[in-house]
């Protein structure tokens, strides 16, 4: 067992973990972040994507012990219980989700992408959006609603910047 301190969605906690515990499991069971979903446990579906020190990371390919001192964000931090983050709202209006299981992973993968596009003040090409989500599998939507949601979220961001 190793003592580690993680800051998860703003709250820090020190805990003792077995080295082999996956970050995904520790976030789910020790921090109660059940929005972290495990879809394949071998790094091939993107469901478990979280932000580790600000960038997307597959929490099924990460051991919690590796993250001592790190800051982690999960989907719960994005727009709270009302899901009012611009990308979450866009997923809703563009029907970018159905069963919702892959959704937290898509949101955590794509939220930084949307921010980056807004910062660059440009609307990404269709292919660029699809490439940005190429590590995430959605079995329900056929991806189209998710592409539309990204476009919508970028539009909202660009409009806000222009205003």
């Amino acid at each position: 067992m190793i003592d580690i301190t993680l800051e998860v969605n703003g709250a820090s906690k020190t805990l003792s973990v077995e080295p082999r515990r996956l970050l995904a499991d520790v976030l789910r069971h020790e921090f109660g972040m059940s929005g972290v979903h495990i879809g394949c446990a071998h790094g091939a579906c993107g469901c478990c994507t979280v932000h580790l020190d600000g960038t997307p990371r597959l929490s099924c390919l990460t051991f919690a012990v590796q993250c001592d001192g790190a800051s982690i964000r999960t989907v719960e931090s994005l727009g709270g219980s009302e899901a009012d983050h611009v990308l979450q709202q866009a997923f809703k209006s563009e029907h970018g989700l159905q069963c919702g299981y892959c959704t937290p992973g898509f949101l955590m993968t794509l939220a930084p992408f949307v921010e980056e596009m807004v910062a660059q003040k440009r609307m990404p090409e269709e292919g660029e959006i699809r490439e940005a989500m190429s590590g995430n599998i959605c079995r329900c939507t056929g991806y189209q609603g998710i592409v539309a949601a990204v476009r919508k979220a970028v539009t909202v961001g660009l409009d806000a910047g222009a205003a």
Partner: peptide, 9 residues
């Protein structure tokens, strides 16, 4: 959707 998007499902 609110439940599914917010991680509270």
């Amino acid at each position: 959707d609110t439940r599914l998007l917010s991680g509270t499902a």
